[in-house]
Amino acid sequence: MTVQTTFDFDQMLSNAREAYGEELMKMADEGLDFVFTYSDNIAPSSAAGKLIKKYPDRCFNFGIAEANQVGASCGLALTGPPVFAQVFGPFLPLRAADQIHTDIAYNDVNVRLIGTHAGLTAGGGPTHNCVCDLALYRAIPNLTILVPADAGQCIKAIRASMEHQGPMIIRINRGGSPDVYADSNYEYQIGKGIETVPGDDCAIISTGSSVYWAMMAAKQLLNDNIHARVVDMHTIKPLDTELIMKCARETGTILTIEEHSINGGLGSAVADVLCERGFTGSFSKMGLPDEFALLGDPDKVYAHYGMSAEGIVSKVKEMI
């Protein structure tokens, strides 16, 4: 069953980075027990800054020292309450890989690592592009990996994480992006993908901001009488293999799209599932190529690599 989305509307922008901070503030006001850590100046300049001002005793600043922050977050979690740790996304997997692996995952602690600025960035170039993180996270045991499609779903992920046992990555994008869901009246379950657009000619499995691009592509494909199913695979690990195989059986054509390298991300995860189960249909994955991406406005760079709605439409037509 599909859910109510913004499929028939133009872009309705919201910001997951602001939404998660506002939700943490609500949770603190409700009396929920958790700790918040942050690095650099990203959190104070966003909605999370209100949490820091109102509840300073539960908030800890580690400056520009991401590895220290992640390690200390493990120690704080071992004292009892879960820890939400906001880290600049490009530096989280690269500078703190050892701490994620050995401190957080190995000890299986309740730390929710919130990696911001996922995907490409306009100003920092390759050193600030967060496009290889999913490949690392997928290989580390015990890590649950969530990639919300929009700000509203980010709120659902934050709430759901309070009941979840074990370490978690919550990967959010760099700023404002279009809403996927018209409202919050839909079921969100960690590990279960969501069908946002029905269709039987092909299935576009996407995650994060790419869900909206896939939906706009599906809308354009209707002009050619092509009914593309769109799936929001908001949980990369554990992956909803049952939904993937359902799409494979019912459409025979699978395309994945993500703001990540084509190596090791959602596309690779879906390919593993299909190959292991003997899928003989058509499969392809879209993402950033195996190169250091061009520098420029992110939307223009994504379009350059064929990751716009128009690029997805062209790829689907080629496949079917």
Rank of each mutant, 00 (worst) to 15 (best):
Thr5Ser: 00
Asp8Gln: 14
Met12Glu: 15
Leu13Asp: 15
Leu13Glu: 15
Arg17Asn: 14
Tyr20Asn: 00
Glu22Gln: 13
Glu22Ile: 09
Leu24His: 13
Leu24Glu: 13
Asp29Gln: 15
Gly31Arg: 01
Phe34Arg: 04
Thr37Phe: 01
Thr37Arg: 01
Asp40Val: 04
Asp40Phe: 10
Asn41Cys: 00
Ala43Cys: 02
Ala43Glu: 06
Pro44His: 07
Ser45Phe: 03
Ser45Trp: 03
Pro56Ala: 08
Asp57Ser: 15
Asn61Glu: 04
Ala67Thr: 02
Ser73Lys: 13
Leu76Gln: 05
Leu78Trp: 05
Thr79Arg: 07
Pro81Glu: 00
Pro82Gln: 03
Ala85Asn: 11
Gln86Lys: 10
Gly89Asp: 08
Gly89His: 01
Pro90Trp: 01
Arg95Thr: 11
Ala97Pro: 03
Gln99Cys: 02
Gln99Asp: 05
Gln99Glu: 06
Thr102Lys: 06
Asp103Gly: 04
Asn110Thr: 06
Leu113Gln: 03
Leu113Glu: 00
His117Asn: 15
Leu120Arg: 07
Leu120Trp: 03
Ala135Tyr: 10
Tyr137Glu: 05
Arg138Ser: 06
Asn142Gly: 06
Leu143Arg: 10
Ala151Cys: 07
Cys154Gln: 12
Ile155Gln: 12
Met162Lys: 12
Gly166Asn: 11
Gly166Met: 11
Pro167Trp: 08
Met168Trp: 13
Met168Val: 14
Ile169Asp: 03
Arg171Pro: 12
Arg174Lys: 12
Gly176Pro: 01
Val180Arg: 02
Tyr188Arg: 12
Lys192Val: 00
Gly199Leu: 10
Ala203Arg: 14
Ile205Cys: 04
Ser206Met: 05
Ser206Phe: 05
Thr207Ile: 08
Thr207Asp: 05
Leu221Lys: 03
Leu221Pro: 03
Asn225Arg: 14
Arg229Trp: 01
Val230Asp: 13
Asp232Arg: 03
Met233Val: 10
Ile244Arg: 05
Ile244Met: 01
Lys246Val: 04
Ile257Asn: 09
Ile257Gln: 02
Glu258Phe: 06
Gly264Met: 09
Gly265Pro: 07
Gly267Arg: 01
Val270Met: 10
Val270His: 07
Val270Pro: 02
Leu274Thr: 02
Glu276Phe: 07
Phe279Arg: 08
Lys285Tyr: 08
Met286Phe: 00
Glu291Arg: 10
Phe292Met: 14
Leu294Arg: 15
Gly296Lys: 09
Val301Trp: 07
Ala303Ile: 13
Tyr305Met: 13
Gly306Trp: 01
Ser308Lys: 13
Ser308Trp: 14
Ala309Gln: 04
Glu310Arg: 08
Gly311Met: 01
Val316His: 11
